[in-house]
Computed example of a mutant assay.
Amino acid sequence: MEISVELKQRAAGTKPNALRRSGHIPVNLYGHDGDKSLLLTLDAKSVENLIKKARINKTPVEVSIPELSWKGTTVIKEIQTHPWKNFPYHLSFHAVQN
């Protein structure tokens, strides 16, 4: 089963709580280009579907970022959830070197 998501680049200066209120979850992508990381977003509905299908550090996820013309295989390294509301607060992806 292949899982794929399309991430959008986060605008500079955008506050994470403002993103969450607008229905998007902040995402970081590590390892796509050495030690650099990218600040991205994913809509909350896609995050819910992704969490149901993918396992942390195990399931390969095909990620594409159209604004940067980047596409690659990643794994979810971390899912942060709200302490008592139990909804996803932040995701971290790590690129897998082929």
Rank of each mutant, 00 (worst) to 15 (best):
Arg55Asn: 12
Leu68Ser: 11
Asn49Val: 00
Leu7Ser: 03
Thr14Lys: 08
Phe93Gln: 00
Lys8Ser: 04
Met1Trp: 00
Thr73Tyr: 10
Gly31Ala: 12
Val61Ile: 06
Ile65Met: 08
His82Tyr: 10
Ala11Arg: 13
Phe87Glu: 14
His32Tyr: 14
Asn57Ala: 13
Trp70Glu: 15
Ser64His: 03
Thr74Gln: 10
Ser64Ala: 03
Val63Thr: 04
Leu42Ala: 13
Ser64Val: 01
Thr14Glu: 11
Gln9Asp: 13
Ala11Thr: 09
Val47Ala: 04
Tyr30Cys: 08
Ile56Cys: 06
Ser92Asp: 15
Ser4Cys: 01
Ala12Trp: 03
Gly31Ser: 11
Val61Met: 01
Pro66Glu: 02
Ile25Ser: 14
Gly72Trp: 01
Lys77Phe: 10
His24Ser: 09
Gly31His: 02
Leu68Tyr: 07
Ser46Phe: 10
Leu42Pro: 07
Ile3Gln: 12
Gln97Trp: 01
Lys36Ala: 14
Val75Glu: 07
Trp70Ile: 05
Lys85Asn: 08
Ile79Cys: 13
Glu2His: 09
Asn98Phe: 00
Ser37Asp: 12
Lys8Val: 01
Glu48Cys: 07
His82Phe: 01
Trp70Leu: 09
Ala44Arg: 13
Val96Leu: 02
Pro83Leu: 02
Lys36Asn: 13
His24Arg: 15
Arg55Ile: 01
Pro83Asp: 14
Asp33Tyr: 06
